[in-house]
Structures are given as C-alpha cells and as structure tokens.
Design a protein around this nucleic acid. Structure first.
Lengths: 242, 242
DNA sequence: GAGTGGTCTAGACCACGGC
DNA sequence: CCGTGGTCTAGACCACTCC
C-alpha cells in the first residue's frame, strides 16, 4: 500500500512530538531525568530504536541531555555549561570568569509597535522592560534593554532580580516556567550615545556592537526581545560557522 | 571481556575516518555521488546501519549531502545554497540578491607574526594577500583582506580572480582543491579608517563590524585568515543560537 | 550486579527519483 | 521497475554509573 499523504511524518517524529508535549506541559521538568528509553518504548508502544531516534533529535536541539549509564535529562539553564550558549562574548585574554549581572531598572509599559511585532503580542499589551549591566572582571561591558510579555512574566520586579544569583534565563526558568530554547541575533555596529557611553564609561561615539535578540520557547513562540550594546575593546563576539 | 582502552572509538567512527580519508585524498570529489550505503557496507565489512551512522555524522557536519532516492553526495561550495553558510550578512529589506565580489588587489608577501600564528605556518613563509570588495545591489558593503598560505594557493593572481564567477570558496575548491569546512569568526565594532571609509564611501569614523575569520579544511588545518569590515547601515549580521 | 544509554547487526518494508 | 536513502523492528552485547 502506498502512502500518498503529503503530511507524512515518520513514527519517531510523532513520538518526538509527544515528548515535546511532556516537556511543554511540565510533566518533565528542567534538570530532572526523563523515563528510560525502555520505559518510553513501552509507553508509546514502539521499539527502543524509535524512541532513541526521537531523543537523538531532541538532544541535538539542546532540549535533552544524555548521560551514559545514568539516564536522559531535561536541559536546564541552571547548568553552568548553558551560560555561554546564548552569550557569545569572550574576553580577549582568555579570562573565563563569569560575568556579573547588575539590574539597573525595571518597569512596566505598553507594547509599542516594534515590541509588539517582535514578541507577537497586541499593540498596547503589557510588557515588562528591564535594563541591566554586565560586568566582566568588574568592568562594565554590556548594557541590555530587555522586553518581556507582561502576562507571562507577572511579578518580575527589581527585588526579584536583585535576589537572584544565576543567569537571567535560569531565573526565568525557575520562577516563571519559561524555558528559552532558541534565539536569533541581528548584529550591527553603532556609535555609543550619551547615556550608554556614561553607563559603559567610554567616550560618546565609541563604536559598539548592537546585538538585537529575539528568543523563542517551545513551539517557536517568541518570549523575549532584547537589545544589547557590547563594548568590544577587550572582548569579542565569537561565532563558530559549521 | 572488558574494554579498558582509553582511546576506544566505536566502529562507525572508524568507518567515518576511512570515509574522511576518501574525501581528503580526493577519491570522492565535491559534487560527486559517493558509493551507496550498501556498497560501502560491503567495502568496509560492516552492516549498513553502521555506515549509515557514519554518514549521519558527516552530513550533520555539512561534509556530505543526502538525497533520498538518488544517493549521497560530497558537499560543494559550487552549490548556491552553500553561499550564505559563511556569509552571514543579510540586507535589512529582505533583498536576497547575491552579492558581487570585486577583487581590488592581490600580492605576495612573507607571513608576519600574526598571519603565521593564525595560519599555523612559519614566520616569513610565503603568503598571498588579497583585498576585495563585496557589493550588494551595487552598493559597497564589505571590504575583505584575506591571507592565504602561498604554498597551497600557488598561481592565485588578479587574472584568476577576475576570470572567476562563483564565490571565492568555490574557486578555491575547484582550482586549488582546498575545501573550507569550518570557520571561527571574532566580531568587534570599530571606526572606519581613512582608506576603508573611501572604499565603502562613508565618513571616516563610521562604526563598522570587524569580522576576523580563521577558516579550516579537513583535519582542522587553518588555510585562510581574513578580516572583513562590514558596513551595517542597511545590513545586519544574522546569527542563529540553538 | 542491576540499570542506563551506546553500539552493532540483520532483515523487512516505505518513500522518492529516474528510467 | 529498480536502486537509492529513510524508517522500524528485535535482539545481542558493550560501556558507564551507582549501589
């Protein structure tokens, strides 16, 4: 019998979708182990090889992490290895000390034209805006302005930010149940304006990297829009092309 | 019997290495089809599944391209889809016209300190230096200065460059048998100097993206070092974080 | 030793491209 | 219709982790 359906999708991909649902619904939480391949094979009534292929894809997408001899785990931004997955800025003298995040400001507003388009929300819908500074070895290097859909990030305040210690995405994951899984960055070179130059302690007009990022969660839903200005005197943005 | 060897490598990876040799030696050439999975299984005396897993990895690394129903092919920079694999600059108004490469200058020199380090060659070894301009829709947007090991790229002259029509990497592949498979880019923001500002037709001091790239061929051997200056008034550098 | 993921095999069948 | 890659299965055995 031929299979003429134009929407054909192989079994392992259907299994993958079921597993994505388990992640999205919160049945399996970041940091926790998911059931063993054998258990999943029984649960979904397929062979272990088919489950395996589904997990393979999800591991390649950084959704799951396999650990031989232990099990398969839901990826988490609490994992320190995840920090530099989204922050590609590297010190020129390989000083790998973690940057320090300093919240500058946090307020609520209504989505403007651009924010609404980027976040896929209504014009005028509530957004939370956050400004923060990143210090490397004490020196200010990055200023970020971050737009978040107000509905999802209710209760995000300066107090919450100041009480948090890991990365922002780690906080978003733990406190708001939002896991960032993919992002697009648009990079340009700009001159530092007055305000930014003061924050970064450089001359006005200094060339800076402008990094606009849209970040997506499960189902390719955009949940963050941010613009970062990077001082690249002692750092560079590292990108691997494969 | 336990396998205590610390250098254990699974069968499919050994097969992969054999196949990498076939690529490196030129037995299989860019654009051509490699033998079928069944033939390879017989040739290497393993099951088809094991060959499959080797090919899977190489396809994921963009070394091979699978085409269902036809066969598996050696990836080639002649393939138009390969163009934007290494050029991440995108027009702000989605104008997808291919950029035009204009060679400006080409001369031979001896490797300085930095070039020698980046290319992994001796200080003073011969290098070929190439300057070229990239135009998008007629407008100058990128100036590149490209350092190539002279030994590998013997016979690269302005005439050769002007007579070539595809991408540079396409030329390198066809004419010099050098296939670029991976690159690292270090990106910073800089101010346009006098010469660059004239070439790009902008004011001196205009912020530009400085993109330093080291490109590697088989066996992680560096074979190109280049510095590009990108005008990001009407374009941006697009990076996908996964 | 028990349990997990990782490898390898052999065979059946499906989807696709081209003759 | 054939040959190609793509999927799915069932089972054996290996490597790693933890108790």
């Amino acid at each position: 019998m031929r299979h003429d359906s134009p929407t054909f999708s192989p079994l392992y991909r259907q299994i993958k979708n079921l597993m994505l649902n388990a992640l999205e619904s919160g049945e399996w939480r970041p940091g926790q182990a998911i059931p063993s391949e054998q258990e999943l094979a029984i649960r979904f009534s397929v062979s272990q090889g088919t489950v395996r292929k589904a997990i393979d894809e999800m591991a390649a997408e950084n959704l799951l992490v396999r650990k031989q001899g232990k099990g398969t785990y839901v990826a988490s931004h609490n994992d320190p290895r995840a920090l530099f997955r989204f922050l590609r800025l590297v010190p020129m003298d390989g000083d790998l000390a973690h940057p320090q995040s300093v919240p500058l400001d946090c307020w609520k507003a209504k989505a403007g034209n651009e924010a609404a388009r980027m976040l896929g929300i209504e014009l005028g819908a509530p957004v939370t805006i956050l400004r923060r500074l990143l210090r490397f070895a004490g020196k200010p290097v990055v200023v970020d302005e971050i737009y978040l859909p107000g509905e999802i990030f209710q209760g995000l305040t300066m107090e919450v930010l100041q009480g948090s210690h890991g990365s922002l995405y780690s906080l978003f994951e733990s406190r708001f149940g939002v896991r960032m899984i993919r992002a697009e960055e648009r990079i340009r070179a700009v001159a530092a304006d007055r305000m930014t130059s003061e924050t970064l302690n450089v001359a006005e007009g200094t060339p800076l990297l402008s990094v606009e990022r849209v970040t997506y969660t499960y189902g390719d839903r955009p949940v963050e829009w941010r613009r970062g200005l990077y001082l690249t005197a002692d750092h560079y943005y590292l990108n691997e092309l494969n």
